[in-house]
Design a protein around this nucleic acid. Sequence first.
DNA 1: CGTTGGATTGGCT
DNA 2: GCCAATCCAACGC
Length: 194
Amino acid sequence: MSVAPDLLGRTLVRRLPDGSRLAGRIVETEAYEPGDPASHGFRGPTARNAVMFGPAGYLYVYFTYGNHWMMNVVTRSVGEGSAVLLRAAEPLEGLDAMARARRRDRPSELCSGPGKLAQALAVDRSLDGADLVGGPDVWIESGTPVPRVRVSSTARVGVRTGLERPWRFLVAGDPSVSRGRPGPPTGRPRTSRP
DNA sequence: CGTTGGATTGGCT
DNA sequence: GCCAATCCAACGC
């Protein structure tokens, strides 16, 4: 869970097959933990969520609502089943390519939601299980840490269980944060671990 | 094997 | 603010 807020401010990089580079500064994440009823891993491994149960540092990509791909970072060791959903980023590099993929021009509409982010970065099922540490297609660079005081946490968006867990983390006031519809903000994240 | 509904988005009222 | 789009994994029979 603690890695979810730590990903804020880091740079998510995608290298396309033609060699071009796309990048965005992560501004919104959500944590999905072992034993968490809102997590895809809650009922154990399946063909879809298998990557979640593998080693940390890999990309878990899944498809939902008939249209959208979601990008997650696997964060725990083999067998545990955890992930951090990458929900939004501030476009930094390759805005033209992102705009074409998204059919939108305004930067704030390119990566401001989990489905939008994957579409802008040309991420789909083919990158499920991609190596984020040593792989050539997608990775995370250190970026600039976001000061704790600028991080807000809220209930996670779009889930019906686990609402008591304020595990959505965002950069307060950033225009690239998604328009989620969670409950009221709960302020800065708790310092204690679950 | 059929049904259900989803870690969403964008367009329309 | 509301809701259809659109696919498929999960689950029940």
